[in-house]
Amino acid sequence: MKFDTTILELVLDASLLVQMVMLLLLTLSFVSWYLIFYNSRRLKKAGQHARSFEDWFWKSRDFASLYNRINAHDYHEQGMEKLFMAGYTEFARMRKQAEAIAADRLSATQRAMQIVLNNEADELEKNLPTLATIGSVSPYIGLFGTVWGIMHSFHALADAKQVTLAMVAPGISEALIATALGLFAAIPAVIAYNQQITQVDRLLSRYHSFSEEFTSVLQRHAYTSPAATGATSSTNE
């Protein structure tokens, strides 16, 4: 308990600028921990959803029926569902154009899914730059507070005739708290960023693989009649 009281006293005795630096670092730490838990939950749900939809997709033999079932659900589509819906909608639309050749149909379908894939990548990665920024700048902010605190301590001793370690130690201790807070904010942010960017890359790779596999399946249907895949009955266009 004495240790906690001493730390608090050191913070309260620090100069105003050093206190502002400490407050900023604490704020950055709270933001980083919020993003860490938020991103972890979101990526976990995205991974679970991808696995369940893949199982659902490969068990379904009628893509038109699968499209209609997804379209009938009143919820926000995500991940692979968006890829499937965008790809199949574009494929069905192109199948209705008699002048479109099979290669054009597949090319349009791939473009539609690529747009969705890019949007999903942006959505999954939107909070990661903030974590990376906190992890990279926090130590320097803490170091700035430390340097300023030490300068302030030595400046206060300029008129002293005899300087002892006991006179300098409290000021240096106050300043070093800023460095500790900088590391406290930076280390979890860096670790979380490295883990979560890996999760995002794996998830996007999974989306890309699904897009390629779905394109391969559609390629086999591109040269058949529209009625063979139910493409004309799957959309309301």
Rank of each mutant, 00 (worst) to 15 (best):
residue 108 A to N: 12
residue 185 A to W: 04
residue 200 V to I: 06
residue 160 A to E: 11
residue 173 S to W: 05
residue 126 K to M: 07
residue 133 T to D: 06
residue 148 W to Q: 12
residue 128 L to A: 04
residue 198 T to K: 13
residue 152 H to N: 11
residue 103 A to E: 14
residue 223 Y to H: 13
residue 185 A to T: 02
residue 102 A to Q: 11
residue 167 M to G: 05
residue 137 V to G: 09
residue 170 P to G: 13
residue 140 Y to Q: 09
residue 190 V to I: 05
residue 140 Y to S: 08
residue 182 G to S: 09
residue 212 E to F: 14
residue 114 Q to R: 12
residue 223 Y to M: 10
residue 128 L to D: 05
residue 145 G to W: 05
residue 207 Y to Q: 06
residue 186 A to K: 06
residue 161 K to Y: 10
residue 179 T to K: 08
residue 157 L to H: 11
residue 197 I to P: 06
residue 135 G to Q: 09
residue 210 F to N: 05
residue 201 D to Y: 02
residue 146 T to G: 02
residue 170 P to V: 12
residue 180 A to Q: 13
residue 226 P to T: 07
residue 149 G to V: 00
residue 166 A to V: 13
residue 185 A to H: 03
residue 231 A to M: 07
residue 171 G to N: 05
residue 206 R to T: 09
residue 146 T to I: 01
residue 201 D to E: 04
residue 229 T to N: 15
residue 189 A to L: 02
residue 127 N to K: 03
residue 158 A to L: 00
residue 218 L to S: 07
residue 147 V to I: 13
residue 212 E to C: 12
residue 149 G to D: 02
residue 155 H to D: 09
residue 120 E to L: 01
residue 119 N to A: 14
residue 168 V to R: 03
residue 103 A to S: 14
residue 163 V to T: 01
residue 174 E to S: 12
residue 163 V to N: 01
residue 195 Q to N: 15
